[in-house]
């Protein structure tokens, strides 16, 4: 039971806004020592896992291309393009992006992502649409718009991906149920993801609409 003290370290550390990297190291040490490991063994276990999980950081390989595109005016072009579309508003851009993200992810297509779509394209488009309607956006309004774009990307990805039969989580469920003597067809699992996906779109679109209305009314 004492190994749970590492979880407590994480919760407290994040709540107190300590540097998250320090929180993680402290949690690993506390949990490992409470679980009966020597400090040196905890460092070795962490180092081993860190090395094995390097693939998690490979997403950053895309940043030079994104940076070069920004240098060449990608964000500015995205803004110009969206202003040419009549009816483009904060709410319509976010709701459509949410839907497109859900549908493409459900088809197993790698469209979207925080580094590849949100920062260089969708965030500037949404900000431009907001600027066209609300004069002089404040910094906190700008931050709120950006946070909404990032959230639409996440909600779309989470509540679309399980409709794709070959996604990791569907295969994990299938494997887990098989170990417990239950045969599950991945297609059945992905069909049961559809009602929640529809509800996620409706709920989050409502949330977006409320935000856009508040934004339109000014501060």
């Amino acid at each position: 039971m004492w190994s749970l003290s590492g979880v407590a370290v994480v919760v407290l550390g994040f709540a107190a806004r300590v540097n998250p990297l320090l929180v993680v190291v402290a949690a690993a040490l506390v949990s490992g020592i409470a679980g009966g490991l020597e400090p040196g063994a905890v460092i070795a276990a962490f180092g081993k896992a860190f090395n094995e999980n390097r693939y998690v950081s490979l997403t950053w390989l895309v940043l030079p291309a994104i940076g070069a595109l920004e240098r060449a005016g990608l964000q500015e072009r995205a803004r110009e393009l969206i202003l040419k579309i009549r009816g483009a508003s904060v709410a319509s851009i976010l709701c459509i992006y949410l839907l497109v993200r859900q549908v493409t992810v459900a088809l197993g297509l790698p469209f979207g992502g925080q580094a590849t779509m949100v920062r260089p394209l969708i965030a500037p488009m949404t900000e431009a649409a907001a600027e066209a309607r609300v004069a002089d956006l404040t910094d906190s309004q700008r931050d709120a718009i950006r946070a909404h774009v990032a959230a639409a990307d996440n909600v779309g990805a989470f509540f679309g991906e399980d409709i794709f039969v070959a996604i990791g989580s569907v295969l994990l469920i299938k494997g887990f149920l098989a170990e417990n003597g239950i045969t599950a067809d991945p297609l059945q699992l992905s069909l049961w993801a559809i009602p929640t996906a529809v509800a996620a779109w409706a709920i989050h679109a409502g949330h977006i609409a409320l935000f856009a209305r508040r934004l339109g009314r000014g501060r």
Partner: peptide
């Protein structure tokens, strides 16, 4: 990104340590 660039990988590693410690 700064420290945030390292955090996802660090959390994956923490998950592994948690598993070893029996969380």
């Amino acid at each position: 990104l700064g420290w945030a660039a390292l955090l996802p990988q660090m959390l994956s590693a923490l998950g592994a340590v948690f598993a070893v410690a029996g969380v």
